[in-house]
Design a protein around this nucleic acid. Structure first.
Lengths: 223, 223
DNA sequence: GCTCCCATTAATGCATACATTAACGGATAC
DNA sequence: GTATCCGTTAATGTATGCATTAATGGGAGC
């Protein structure tokens, strides 16, 4: 009935470790050996190893031969790299969606995400805001349809996630970002290809600049 | 002295399988179980498993629960996805290099790669041409400096590699591509940001169109 | 002849055993 | 007191054993 394959331990380990890292319960720089992690997760080393290999491929941990797995810190340079790539990819993807002339049904989830962002902002619920923000961006990518692109961007989001939540509370409420989303939806609906790309590009560049400013202001060389 | 860590079996398995796939000795659609591969490589299942997990993350194989690993075919749709992303990423990266004002020392490897392409074309040595082409693109990315970007593009190249070598012999000699490279080097040297981006973009789009035309002409739904 | 069921087979997922080898610490020489 | 050497410890890389479970084939029932 449900096409869900029963969860393997390796998959479970992967998901749990990923969550621990995202939630900063395993903070950047945290190191643990395979036996330690295995003990912590209540399984043997084998599935833990497989999970770690995946997490390494996803850019979340580093496997150091004799010292176990280390949760990668996110430095300002890393964020620059990530946002550089996102700035090249996402505006182009959005422009392609605009060119295709999305239906109202296509746009509905984006509308919803934007409304949620506005609502979250009104309530000063930054976690909800971040969730809706993520949802907006991923929904737009899925609308564009390029699976590989979605995968790449998702991986980059995951890498940047911790820095984003950390800096989110050190800055003014993201009114501009929320307005950007509203503008992007409008341009998508109007099929305005160039405007979509331009606004999205500015949106990304502003986000990057703000984030990097905070990292440097607070001397958060690594996170 | 040499910082090379001794090669592990898992690493060896990964490299060898990757080569087999690239060289079409393990053609698209090829399936083998873990014990079969382990036997073939003369090692136990454990390192083979680890290699397969990595290869799956790199988009080269698919792990089918009871049927082993399957070498992923490259369909026209896949190539479209890949070239879409490359078209968004590479021209932007090249433009950034142009903006930075590369030195002659920076440009030398690109010059060399371009010369090699021209020489290969004169000798009708398509393999050499393809090698120089790859080298050009990777060198340019390294010049740009974004490690993540280089990693992403490399993975996409690997995925597209088989389709490229296959179609290479079904088309006219790549004079235009070679000239494009020459033009790109010139624009980089002149620090001509917009021209670099534009030419590179056309370069990629033309390559994509040609490749997809061939795939459709020859009804190579999958490769 | 066709379909369904069951037994057999074998691949996977995981646990565990083991050899290797790097890291650490203490002891000794100076 | 310091530096060096060596023995101990422990983590990794790999092999292997084992339970589970899906796929396959043959036989029975219709």
């Amino acid at each position: 009935m449900s096409p869900v394959t029963k969860p393997s331990r390796a998959e479970d380990a992967h998901d749990r470790l990923r969550d621990e890292i995202r939630a900063n319960r395993m903070p950047p720089g945290f190191q643990a050996t395979e036996p330690e992690i295995a003990l912590r997760l209540g399984m043997s080393r084998t599935p833990v190893r497989e999970a770690l290999i995946r997490l390494e491929a996803e850019g979340l941990v580093e496997l150091i031969p004799r010292h176990g797995a280390r949760v990668l810190p996110i430095r300002a340079d890393d964020m620059r790299e990530i946002y550089d790539i996102l700035t090249a990819l996402e505006p182009e993807a959005a422009a392609q969606v605009a060119a295709r002339g999305p239906s109202e049904a296509d746009l509905a989830p984006l509308e919803a995400a934007t409304r949620d962002m506005e609502a979250a902002l009104a309530k000063s619920d930054l976690d909800m805001w971040a969730e809706a923000d993520d949802r907006f961006h991923l929904t737009l990518l899925e609308l564009q349809g390029n699976r590989r692109l979605t995968g790449i961007v998702t991986a980059l989001y995951d890498q940047a996630h911790r820095a984003r939540v950390f800096t989110m509370r050190l800055r003014a409420p993201p009114h501009q970002s929320t307005q950007d989303h509203r503008a992007i939806v409008d341009h998508l609906r109007a099929g305005n290809v160039d405007a979509t790309r331009t606004v999205f590009r500015q949106h990304r560049q502003r986000a990057a600049t703000e984030l990097l400013d905070i990292l440097e202001t607070y001397k958060l060389g690594h996170l």
